[in-house]
Design a protein around this nucleic acid. Structure first.
Lengths: 348, 348
DNA sequence: TTGTACGCGTTATCAA
DNA sequence: TTGATAACGCGTACAA
């Protein structure tokens, strides 16, 4: 088992100094053709590669991006990672991941861990617990130490940093308007509690769409799910709530769900109650997931373009990292990714 | 914007030497209570944290695990990552990801990138292209440099390293036997070309199950999909092949599919051909995915326990990394994760 | 009780 | 053309 070879070892073997080796390998004009040849051949033979850690220490730059997300077993987030990774690799960066599991403390710990020199900057989506507590001190601290942050999807308006979002309000409005155009008279929304920003915005979009079309706002048609518990493992409870919604409002002929799981659950309940989709009930979800495409009937959705969000976030971050100009006032941008209504079989 | 504070700066501020600060922070008995108090208070105030990179360089240990997978937008692989991350964090390690996108060259480049000091060891699943080419030199090179590798799921028997797998052969046999017990007389398999190890093993399990039950082996019932092309984006082609399979073999009353997508496609085709599931056709898939649970009817599957695989892989790797004993002959273990037949609605 | 020196692997600067 | 030295930030053996 031969350890990785270093400059020092090469120098010793060839009986020259370390700096000569270093220069020879970087093809410096200072070094004679002779020694260059000799050194380069030797280095190639032993497959020399500079040690990243040493370079990071010397350059005070790791060329690594830290990405903190609430969960990874989630189509949207893995799409985002894919996007980040694509751009990062193209521009010579690695990606290191930290999962918050929707927990505030894990988010903080993970960020501290990575902030101590391991990475150059963060790309992150805020955990539910953090949003609920509205405690954002760790973001400010990180940035005050000169480490840039790009937030995506679940962002905090209070924090000054680059952001990549979709226009949740407008997109929801568009989706609900679509339902109205398709003839729905009684449209329910299945959404999250308001502390989740995206949930709140989507609810507002729903309300505005109804209002603009002079449709009555019925509070019983608004189902706000408390998903502080993990609904993925509490499907029965979710379905019960939805079933109750249907039973309390027999007129429902349209459902707008703010995520894939809610949409699918609504479809499942509808099937159970013998409600035909899309004839008697039209459904639109808000998601970038795979379930929509493969469900029966396949689900019409507002697509968020997760991969594109990841790419944009990575571009923003790396641009900032490599921006030399020392401006007085730092400027932050918010990129809004256009959503797309993908029409499938749950709408007519 | 205050940069992260270092020992040097603290030393300067307090007018003591760097090593005094270092010792004081580690609560060394060498240092007087007085100075300790002073230093610790100051460090706390400025939120001092040792620089990971410097520590890595000094200790020649990064406490970071590299994970290389073919794709991340895939339920099984994200489950594995989740498992790795859980164990890694618990034991004080970070996780850095590299995606091969099923490409040999990206796999090699990514590994080289990370192997140059960024990480202590690899957890990986081999890309399709690498399996096809059977070029495993990069694995051997990495290990010969003293960097351990743990392979999971898609492993190479030729390579001596720790492995975490499921017993594909036995699991497939179990699944097909289940179909036979359920009364299926004509069972088709939808699998991959043989260069994918897991596909080959699952096919063998299928064959053995038939044989053990004295059922005829009909070659036309074996559909080997060439997924060198990305089937996810070529669903139509996949469905055509399956439709042909059904049309050529009208007797089919059971399908064993080696992954989720194949299983769902089979179900879709069956629906199109007005074949009732599970009355006329029973289906079992091999997967750990979400689609199975939410499909209609929900799919009976062989579950691979991806998260558990990740956890095991991480345990193996970290154990090896922290094993001090310098044994003559290195020993490698292969952990076999038990699969589980999750019975849902596509079997009676 | 405190400080000096060294090494981890690299590169840049300056001296020979 | 080559080599010695310093520096990145840390911890530790050893000297004061």
């Amino acid at each position: 088992m031969k350890r990785k070879i270093t400059l020092k070892q090469i120098a010793k073997e060839l009986d020259v100094s370390i700096s000569t080796v270093s220069k020879a390998l970087r093809n410096s004009a200072e070094i004679s053709e002779d020694t260059k040849q000799k050194v380069q051949a030797f280095a190639k033979l032993y497959n020399y590669r500079p040690n990243n850690i040493a370079l990071s220490l010397k350059n005070r730059k790791t060329n690594t991006i830290g990405i903190i997300i609430p969960e990874i077993v989630h189509h949207f987030f893995s799409k985002v990672i894919q996007g980040v990774e694509t751009v990062a690799n193209k521009r010579g960066y690695n990606v290191i991941i930290g999962l918050s599991n929707e927990s505030f403390s894990k988010e903080v710990i993970n960020m501290e861990m990575l902030a101590n020199g391991s990475i150059d900057g963060f790309i992150l989506s805020i955990s539910k617990e953090t949003l609920l507590m509205q405690d954002y001190h760790h973001f400010n601290e990180t940035m005050s130490q000169g480490m840039p942050i790009v937030m995506f999807d679940r962002v905090a308006n209070e924090i000054q940093c680059d952001k990549v979002i979709v226009d949740d309000f407008k997109s929801a409005k568009k989706a609900v308007t679509k339902l109205i155009e398709n003839g729905c008279k009684s449209i329910a929304i299945i959404t999250t509690k308001d502390y989740i920003n995206v949930g709140r915005l989507r609810t507002q979009g729903y309300l505005e769409a109804l209002e603009n079309n002079k449709m009555p706002l019925t509070s019983s048609l608004i189902l706000k799910i408390d998903d502080s518990l993990d609904m993925e493992h509490n499907l029965a409870a979710l379905e019960n709530e939805i079933e109750q919604l249907f039973k309390d409002n027999k007129t429902i002929d349209g459902v707008f769900a703010v995520n894939e799981l809610y949409a699918l659950s609504a479809m499942k309940v509808a099937r159970k109650l013998n409600i035909k989709i899309p004839e008697d009930l039209q459904v639109i979800g808000f998601t970038d997931g795979v379930l929509s495409k493969h469900s029966t009937p396949s689900l019409t959705t507002v697509s968020q373009h997760g991969k594109l969000m990841g790419e944009k976030a990575a571009e923003l971050l790396i641009d900032k990292l490599e921006d030399q100009t020392e401006t007085e006032e730092e400027t932050f941008s918010t990129v809004v990714i256009e959503t797309e209504l993908v029409e499938r079989e749950t709408t007519i």
